[in-house]
Design a protein around this nucleic acid. Sequence first.
DNA 1: AGATAATGTGTTTATTTTACACATTAAATC
DNA 2: GATTTAATGTGTAAAATAAACACATTATCT
Lengths: 246, 246
Amino acid sequence: MATVANGKHVQNIKSLQAIQTEVQSSNRIALSVDCVIFGFDENKLKVLLIRSDLKKYQSKWSLLGDLVAEKEDLHDAAYRILKQRTGLDDVYLEQVHAFGSVSRHPAGRVVTVAYCSLINVQHHKLKILDNELHWHDVQSVSELAFDHQEIFQTCYKWLQKRIQEHPLGFNLLPKKFSLRDLQNLYEAILDTKMDRRNFRKKFFAMDFLIDVDEIEQDVPHRPGKLYKFNFEKYAKKKKKWVGIDF
Amino acid sequence: MATVANGKHVQNIKSLQAIQTEVQSSNRIALSVDCVIFGFDENKLKVLLIRSDLKKYQSKWSLLGDLVAEKEDLHDAAYRILKQRTGLDDVYLEQVHAFGSVSRHPAGRVVTVAYCSLINVQHHKLKILDNELHWHDVQSVSELAFDHQEIFQTCYKWLQKRIQEHPLGFNLLPKKFSLRDLQNLYEAILDTKMDRRNFRKKFFAMDFLIDVDEIEQDVPHRPGKLYKFNFEKYAKKKKKWVGIDF
DNA sequence: AGATAATGTGTTTATTTTACACATTAAATC
DNA sequence: GATTTAATGTGTAAAATAAACACATTATCT
């Protein structure tokens, strides 16, 4: 379309080459991914942290991050970084938010995209432990390096909301679990206590639990029944209308 | 911390300079922002689109985007791009998602971050109309350039969820509005019809509407009462517990 | 056999959501 | 000014959901 008389319909046309030049020669920015890996262990919510790579920030804990390679999909980078830092490769990651302040990183302009996951600490043994990688109680996390405290808080809130709307939690439990296991999980993540009877009622009403007709072993009290989550049925379900509420 | 005997606590220490080198010399990627601006006009939900800058894609519509400058905060870039493309500068933007496939853009590797807004079409006159910028019915949006269709769909779903949990909608209405205005807005965005009496009851129960003791003017039927939204009261309110549901 | 420490179940009440019908008001028309 | 029109404004009953709450049961441990 050409420019029209009244000047209202100017068209900016650029050749592919011109845009390629822009994309390749100017304004390029370091891009990183930070992984916020939550885990559940002994009825507590944990998060994986390492000592910062950066000498100046060695005394501080930081999230698992690295730069994204030029020919690497963003989510591939997240999986690669998790694998490099922990050895884990059978974990589901979800993007949460991008953080892009000019001065957020001391080494220069680095925009980072946060990815989140929830895993079962007992079932995902860490294979790499460089930089003092280990699980921290989420309650004790403070003073992380750079803006990682903000990223962590954003992801923690995201997780608390997410787990109420999606069955994320079942990846943290063994395939067969008791309702007490399930409730402990929700209580740990949401940092609250719930009524056991109403909790059970709620989950039975959702009708995604399959009774596997087994009971807990080696518990010093009456063993609970075990269930598994019906992922097939959940996948088929069309999400119900939520309703206005704020 | 030094490497310990069993090799389990290797520490990767990098000097600031070493990381600066990484950040500055390698792996830098073009980063863009795409703005998905929703508007409400004549009881319909609209979205702002332009003809693609890129000659090869001229026949297709695209979102309002541009590269992020090296010394520019991500959200500043979003506001700058919106201003450049439309002349609008009094609009609130929220980040939705980053899109980072290697091959998503024909000009090379460009990671983009989508930002969203909702504005009142009548109260935000577009000052720039280059590249055929104008409002499109969301229902008619299809075949956008690049991966913009996916970005648009993600933002549309985000908006539908968001407006049920936050009072975004009130920015689209005049300061004083009738309950019919409000319902039309929700019906347009959620693409559904609601019961008028229950809708009113719900909003009155929330108790964020202030009766301004005025009525609609120039309507060819019984005029409705006008209300304004109590932003102060909303700001003070601590968000209520939502409850597990999926 | 009894104490212990859990699980498993049900009812009542309160709250929220849904469905649904009629009187009221201002403007437009005759 | 009486009538028609096209909305607004209000209330109630039924259904579904959430919250509060107590007791019997079961396996283990002593």
